[in-house]
Every structure is written in C-alpha cells, then in structure tokens.
Design a protein around this nucleic acid. Sequence first.
RNA 1: CGGGCUGUAGCGCAGUCUGGUAGCGCGCCGCAUUUGGGAUGCGGAGGCCCUCGGUUCAAAUCCGAGCAGCCCGACCA
Length: 584
Amino acid sequence: MRWSQFFIPTLREDPADAEVVSHRLLLRAGLIRQLGAGIYSYLPLAQRVALRVQKILREEMNRIGGQEFYLPAIHPAEVWKESGRWSAIGEDMFRLQDRRGSDMCLGMTHEEIFTAIARHELRSYKQLPQVWYQIQMKFRDEPRPKSGLMRLRTFTMKDAYTFDVDASGLDRSFADQREAYKRIFTRCGLKFAIVEASSGAMGGSESSEFIVRTPAGEDLIASCEACGYAANVEKATSRLSPIEDEAGPEAPEEFPTPNVRTIEDLTTFPGGAPAERQIKSLVYVATDAATQEQYAALALLRGDHPLHETKLADSLGASQVRPAHPEEIRELLGASAGSLGGVGAADKARAAKKRLRIVADEALRGRRDMTTGANKDEHHLRGVSVERDIRPDAWADLRTVASGEACPRCESGTLDVYKGMEVGHIFKLGTKYSESMGATVLTQDGKEVPIVMGSYGIGVERIITAAVESHHDADGIKWPKAIAPFDAVVTVTNVKNEEMSAAGERLYEELRRAGLEVIIDDRDERAGVKFKDADLIGIPFRITVGKKITDQKVELFDRATKQSEDVDIADVAAELQRRVFEGL
RNA sequence: CGGGCUGUAGCGCAGUCUGGUAGCGCGCCGCAUUUGGGAUGCGGAGGCCCUCGGUUCAAAUCCGAGCAGCCCGACCA
C-alpha cells in the first residue's frame, strides 16, 4: 500500500469524547469512527487488524475440527420462543416486526439457530461430536455502551458450538476449546487469566472467562498468585478465620435503637455490636428464571460483608434480582430498611400473603448471639442464633470477596482483586437448548438422548481493544506483530530527493516480494510528521530511508522497544523476515 | 432507568451570564521558502450555532419541549 493513497485519518489532538486509552488511540490513529452510541465504523486500518485476528481465529478453530458456518443475523421469533429466551431476555434484544407483523429479532447470540439446524440434521451418535462455528455480527441493546469498542451494541463475534452425545464428550470438546482459546489469545499478543465465572442467563453447569487485565476493564477478578486460583468476583470465594461466639441467651431479646439506620450506626450505639457480630438483612425482588414469577428474597450476610447480586441471583435460580423498593419492604416486613431481620420474617411474609425466600450467606453458619433488626422500626434483636431463630430456606455463598482475604484453595496465598476485561467466555451448556428445542440423537443402544452442548465466544473488537490497552505508550499504539495492520512501514524522509525515493520504492517492492505486509510512506510531508504518524498507528517496524542512503544504509526502527539501528539496504529484507516471523 | 456534563467549521474549543457584525488553534486549498521527530510566511475556502416551538424590533445567547453524545451508578449472555 501507498500511504499517500491509503485512508488513514490520524488526529493530532485527542477527541473530546474518548477517555479510555484504547478508545482515544483507535480514534486518533484513524482506525474507527463513531456512528452512534456503541456503534462504530471500522476504517481500512481497523479492518486489516480485524482480518488478521479473524485469520487466527479460523486457524485455531479449524485446528480442533471446527467447521465454519455463516448464519443469519436476523431471526424469526419462533426459535427464541421455543428456547424460552424470547421472554427471558429483556430489553437487551433488538426486536422488530416484518411487514406482515411477525416478530423478529437481531441475533445477540446463536444457540437457538445452531440448535435448530442440529435437531433436523443430527440423528445418530455416529455423527458426533460436531464443532460448529462462525464469525458474525451480534446485536445487543446494551443499557450503557461505553469506552469505544469495549462495550458495543453491534460487534463481531467468533461463536462456536459443540454437540456431543454425553457429558464426557462435552468435557473433551470443552477442553479442546479451552486450549484453542489459549493459543488464540497468546498469538494475539495478550496476557490473560482463565477465571471461573457465573454462566448467568446462558444456562449450563460450568463456564470460564478469559480475562485481560486493564484498568479500563469492567470485570473484577480475584486471584491468588501463590496457587493460581482466579475467579470473577461474581463467583470468587475466600477463606475466613472462624469467629467464636458466646452461647447467648435462650431467646432473642428486643431492645430499642432510636436513630440507628445502618450497620455502622449500630457498632457505636450503646449496647450495639461490632459489624462482624451483626446480621445484615437485604430485601430483593427476584424474577424466577423459568416461570418469570416475581417474589421477595431476604439475603442475610455478616454485617461487614457486602452482597454480590449475581451470587444471590444464582443461588435463587433467578434471571434477575433488584433491591426492593421502600414500600415493598414495608409491606412485606412492616419496617424500614435499617430495622430488618430474618427472625420472624417468614411469618410476617405469610401474614402479608407474600412469597419470601430467605437465603443466608455461608459465613453465618453456626453463628450465635448475633444482633439484627427486629422488623419493627428503630428496634433490634440481640442474642440471635442464625439456625435456631431464623432457619433460612437456603445457604449460599453471597458475599463479595475483597483484596487481602485468604485464598480459598491454598494455604498461604492471599487474594488480589483487579480489573479486567472479558475477551472470551466458554460455557458447558449441557442439554438446556437441546431439550427445550428437541435436538436428540440415538445412542449405540438405541436410546434417544438430548445432545450435550457447549458454547464458546470471542469478541473480535474485545481482542483489538485489549491489544491496544496492553500495548501502547505516550506516542501511540504498539501492535503485537501477529495482528498489526502492516508488518513494516518504509518511510522515505524526503520524497523530493530522487535517490531516497528510488531506493525506498525498490526496497518496498523487495519487502513485498519477501512476503511481508508493507506500506510505503510516500507522502510529501516532513519527516517528523511521518515519524509521528507511524508511531501513532503502531506498525511494529519502520525502515527509514534517509540521508544515509548514500552509503547504502537505512535505519531499522522497532516500535515496541524504540531501538533503531543502521542496516545495509541489501540486508533489510532478510533481517525483517527474521524479526517479523519469529515466534509467529 | 437515576445522577452529572456537553451539543457552535473536519477536529479541539471560546463566545451564552449581560440579546445586536460568529471567532481562535489545528487541519484543509494555493504560492513561496523549508525538508530526520507534528516547519514558516502570505493568500484563501469552509457555519441550518443539534431540532422544533415561544418571547423580542432583533436569539448561538432568554424560556419550553424534544433529540443526540459522554461520564458515574443501576443493568449486562
């Protein structure tokens, strides 16, 4: 390519709306332009990067037996109604109607569509396993798109689906995908962690996220350096030192607590209790994942422990939970937040004819002589034993872990909580979709069984974003070699100088013949402008053809290390080939 | 959906409080000089001041409604 004719609209100044590093640099380097909130156009430079990412995705998918499909992006509602997700998914789905008034949607993922194919065509265990994938546009009407390509409303996803006859087959397919993902992210120049995650509304038994650490990330990851434990905080646990309680009184004792509204208030109130001796009581409204029925949930935690809402939802089997409104709380328990508690809550709910489910955090197991609200404004109870006086409907891990807590897996480590972005997510789906949609095969002994599925996604834009977040400096992007838009740029410092210009053109042709992706900066600009632009868009290597050409020397500049050296022009092609292809 | 902020030239912004000729920097076009880290001079082009309505002799500016974007939170497959 010739820079003078190639569309690279770089910006000298930072765009006002871009705060996150990757967003700012992708705009400034002329890769993307915004069309709307969470909707971006990819300009030629970005498309070159995306195509290289996709090439890696295809190679690694094909390597584990993947077969590439290309499915529609617009779907009739029927298949989504069959799986139950037409109603289970809320406003995140773009919905529309066709001219006949039939419900349609834009595809936010493709489990239903692939399953619809599988149920018609897969009949026998002999056809399994199958590994199907595609690289396709996805549409999700995010409530809050943000940070450039980090959270988009339309994006490119490599989504793969596996079909096995049984759980052990799924285990193998899942392991294959996991290994493929490791190779993909490594080849793309990313450092990542594989973490346990909640499978959420996706369903299924197990899921792992691939996370790239960056301050711009939206996920919180708890990890232990000592043993390698890593989990999304929506799933992470930690080991707590046990607390020895006194037996306490025979029964809870009520006492007045005027003006006490919070756990904190009660720690300083005369006759109160330290936070770890209090029970925090939080009322939520949960939506059942299967029936869509709404009901109240009372979450109980140790006073100094924050709730993690995803954990609460998972423990209830709810598709979503939200904090109850003050009126709802009063209707249910007859008191305001600040004086709530689990003692007698079930009776109160029954009296109010409301369904209530009480879930207690594991850290409350066996605790006695605790203090909590009395479900009577400005009154609390002391001497509460959780099992004796509350008898929760369920025990679950509800607590959000914090940095510095002890690792749940190893003896010595402590947890570090850091921000990261999800670049890939793999799920063991099991039979959720095959059962609801009737995708079955016959086993060897002639039994009809639902196909056991897995689903595996990688966001192409997320890889690009993570690469920029991980590889940049004050001058611009430093693309990892495998996904850079070009391998090298030949910079002719002065195109009006015949000798430089001619040497540059000859070198450009030679490098192209050597199999390198090269762009020649043949613009009639001053050298400084060209250097700044080359640094900004982040091409890994720059060959500067300048004054030293009289001695047959050019300069080889490494963008990542900023090291440069003079090389004989005759040796450049071989040297570049060595550096570019090394490690790929 | 709640809170905050912003819509003026391609980009970054001033002007709005106190109504009266629409400005600055960068970029863009032409000419000259310059040519290894975002050159200099001279000349020039470029505007539905987000939209609609209202007040006024007069609105970028005041009032009302709407739309859009960004940030925080809620949310998130």
